[in-house]
């Protein structure tokens, strides 16, 4: 009786409901997109009404927001930050640069496709996306979480070898430490 499917469904529903309504966000603001976040979080657009609030460290965060381009040097730190986060964790790619390289399509030092290195749940298009788009992205992520489809972390664990191979292609002599998750 206690382990039947209905009970599981109800527990999953409650978990997903709290997860979607309480997103601790770690904004990895190395790109230009970080300038859109103060507007998103403060009086005018107020993302806190959706339950999104800033987290100070990766240990506390659920949501990694990658705002704009990533150079190979920052990619190392992003991978490290992502692996330090605790399950369940989500990633939002923010701006054209994370989607296809954007204006850095021929730059020798900027990665073009973020989802080859870490799993991305939602992309927000634009250069830069305005706060309305950012909030639309949060809403989309909440929809995915409620349906149980935001499973980037599981994908990362299952396909770790594939991700590691891609990462090694860019970060040649960098020791990629196995973090506990």
């Amino acid at each position: 009786m206690y382990n039947d499917n209905n009970a599981q469904t109800i527990v999953e529903y409650i978990k997903n409901f709290t997860r979607k309504n309480s997103l601790f966000m770690l904004a990895y603001g190395t790109g230009c997109g970080a300038i859109e976040l103060p507007a998103t979080l403060t009086s005018r657009y107020d993302a806190e009404r959706l339950g999104v609030r800033g987290a100070a460290t990766p240990r506390q965060a659920d949501l990694l927001l990658i705002t704009g381009y990533l150079s190979t040097k920052t990619l190392k730190r992003v991978i490290r930050v992502y692996e330090q986060m605790q399950d369940p964790k989500y990633v939002i790619g923010f701006g054209s640069c994370t989607i296809n390289g954007g204006m850095y399509w021929d730059s020798y030092n900027t990665i073009k496709l973020l989802d080859k290195y870490i799993p991305v749940d939602v992309y927000i298009n634009g250069c830069m996306p305005r706060p309305e788009s950012v909030i639309a992205g949060f809403k989309e992520l909440q929809r995915l979480i409620a349906e149980g489809k935001a499973d980037g972390a599981t994908k990362y664990k299952e396909n770790l070898d594939w991700y590691r191979e891609n990462q090694k292609k860019v970060l040649k002599n960098w020791p990629l430490v196995e973090y506990n998750w």
């Binding site: 409650i14 978990k15 309504n21 403060t42 806190e48 009404r49 369940p88």
Partner: peptide, 23 residues
């Protein structure tokens, strides 16, 4: 601002208790 609902802290705590903790 509009602000979060007043039960927001409960959601935060339940979510935090349902998270993996492997540090």
């Amino acid at each position: 601002r509009v602000g979060p609902p007043i039960y927001q802290n409960f959601l935060d705590v339940i979510k935090l208790y349902s998270k993996d903790t492997s540090i």
